[in-house]
Amino acid sequence: MTIFDEYKTYKGEVEISPSLLWEYDLSHFDWWKTRKVVVQRIIERGWLTDFYAAFKLYGGIEGFREIIKEVPSLSPRDMNFVCVAFDLKREELRCYTRKLLRDQLLSS
């Protein structure tokens, strides 16, 4: 059982909390173009209903999972969370490979 098992049976209306994207004008917001920012904010600060809204917006859990792989930066704690919750390996995450490259560059 995962924390997102209820998603398929959830009947309530969901929308992404505007407070997650406080600096953007949401009346002219391109949800697809800025998908990495949206997903990053939801992972970092979102509620369960924010996840559900993003699943609905980005093609279900699988679509959201693919966007997670593209997110440029996440904290170690958030990386661990997405790896466990979405059955990902760290090496699949751009934020992890970028961190490894940065650490490698700084240590040389």
Rank of each mutant, 00 (worst) to 15 (best):
M1S: 09
M1F: 08
T2Q: 08
T2V: 08
I3P: 04
D5N: 08
E6W: 10
E6F: 07
E6I: 12
E6V: 11
E6T: 10
Y7C: 04
Y7P: 01
Y7D: 02
K8T: 13
T9W: 14
Y10F: 15
K11P: 10
G12Q: 12
G12N: 13
V14S: 07
E15I: 11
I16S: 02
S17T: 10
P18V: 03
S19W: 08
S19M: 14
S19A: 14
L20M: 05
L20K: 03
L20D: 04
W22M: 08
W22I: 08
W22E: 12
Y24Q: 09
L26I: 06
L26D: 05
L26A: 06
S27A: 15
H28Q: 12
H28C: 15
H28P: 11
H28V: 12
H28M: 14
F29Q: 07
D30L: 09
D30V: 07
W31K: 05
W32F: 14
W32N: 13
K33G: 09
K33T: 08
K33D: 09
T34M: 08
R35M: 15
R35T: 10
R35H: 09
R35C: 15
K36F: 10
K36Q: 14
K36P: 11
V37D: 12
V38L: 04
V38W: 02
V39D: 01
V39Q: 01
V39E: 00
Q40S: 07
Q40G: 06
R41Y: 02
I42M: 07
I42A: 05
I43S: 02
E44R: 12
W47A: 14
W47F: 15
T49A: 03
F51Q: 08
Y52F: 08
A53Q: 03
A53Y: 01
A54G: 06
F55L: 05
F55A: 03
K56P: 03
L57E: 06
L57V: 04
Y58H: 02
G59Q: 10
I61H: 00
E62W: 00
G63Y: 00
G63W: 00
F64P: 00
F64I: 01
F64H: 01
F64N: 00
E66Y: 01
E66F: 00
I67E: 03
I68R: 03
E70Q: 09
E70D: 11
V71T: 04
V71S: 02
P72T: 11
P72A: 11
S75I: 05
S75T: 07
P76S: 06
D78W: 02
D78F: 03
M79Q: 15
V82M: 06
V82N: 06
V82R: 04
C83H: 13
V84C: 09
V84D: 11
A85N: 05
F86I: 00
D87S: 12
D87V: 03
L88E: 02
K89G: 12
K89S: 15
K89N: 15
R90W: 08
E92R: 05
E92D: 10
E92A: 06
L93I: 11
R94I: 10
R94F: 10
R94E: 14
R98L: 14
R98A: 13
K99Y: 13
K99M: 15
K99R: 10
L100Y: 05
L101Q: 15
L101Y: 08
R102P: 04
R102I: 07
D103C: 08
Q104T: 15
L106S: 13
S107A: 12
S108V: 11
